[in-house]
Design a protein around this nucleic acid. Structure first.
Ligand SMILES: [Mn+2]
Ligand SMILES: [Mn+2]
Ligand SMILES: [Zn+2]
Ligand SMILES: [Zn+2]
Lengths: 144, 144
DNA sequence: GCTATCATTGCAACCAAGTTGCATTTACTA
DNA sequence: TAGTAAATGCAACTTGGTTGCAATGATAGC
């Protein structure tokens, strides 16, 4: 059952990567499959741990793969005040600009998929906005 | 004229620090005076450079001073996606939770003092919000 | 299927920002 | 004008990410 699911993610990852027109390497497939299965933001370190066992990926290569997946809009990168990047598989290809929640106790980050990251007031004259980051920090349901 | 102003900031810094009831060391006074004069978010590195010349402060000590000033609410610390902390002197003691603007070209950060950092939708059940970070990224007036 | 080609990977060394432990100095108190 | 605790300086360390380059491997053309 779980094995079937994992094969399914493997295949979905493979397809998504091939659709970009670039090379479908085993590293890219394994990382994306893992993120598709996880469906939540995962740090570089966590990914490295999860992938341990099966012939493990070089640290630098993992950075480059994550960067590549981000460029191709297959994942998005979430910055956090702990100086750690986290990555989550995108469900639809358009990058939906949503808010995030960071639990200050367990340090997990969650995507608030239906809270848009936006602001209400006008910016100072001459400023051109390009992107908005909105992060709510506090305690998650498991840590309250 | 400028000399007078700098003495003024020195004195204000000294007073503010003494009001905390803790020690008014020359390092604390110099750093806070500089931030009071600057009135915008400044990185650790920039502060180190500005303070060069006059008997220069140890790097670690500067980190500790900034941390202390932040704890005492005399400055606030702004986190950014470039993994660099910036500090700005607080004008009033209550920490006003405002948004920030980050210019992606000149890398400067500005406080949007009258844009509140807040959100509209409800959080998932059981989540307890404690703090909100809102950052608009784009081009500042000088970089457009 | 086999080979050539160029993108991707692994490795080692590097970097920047921030932290820690501990001995020395300094601001305040009495 | 000491005595004392707090702050400082220094050296070494940590974490997260980057760079250059040689070795490897995915795909296109045959
Ligand atoms: Mn997200
Ligand atoms: Mn601010
Ligand atoms: Zn939590
Ligand atoms: Zn700018």
């Amino acid at each position: 059952m779980i094995a079937d699911m994992s094969i399914d993610f493997q295949e979905r990852a493979d397809n998504l990567i091939r659709q970009t027109g670039e090379r479908a390497t085993s590293g890219r497939i394994r990382v994306l499959a893992m993120l598709l299965a996880e469906q939540r933001p995962v740090s570089h370190q966590e990914i490295e741990e999860r992938l341990r066992g099966k012939s493990r990926l070089n640290r630098v290569t993992l950075y480059r793969i994550l960067d590549w997946l981000n460029d191709k809009c297959l994942v998005h990168r979430i910055v956090s005040d702990d100086r750690v990047w986290r990555f989550r598989a995108n469900n639809d290809l358009r990058t939906h600009r949503h808010a995030h929640f960071k639990c200050t106790r367990c340090t997990r980050v969650m995507c608030l998929d239906d809270m848009k990251a936006e602001y209400d007031r006008p910016l100072p004259a001459g400023y051109r906005p390009l992107e908005v980051e909105l992060t709510v920090k506090g305690l998650c349901a498991e840590c309250v």
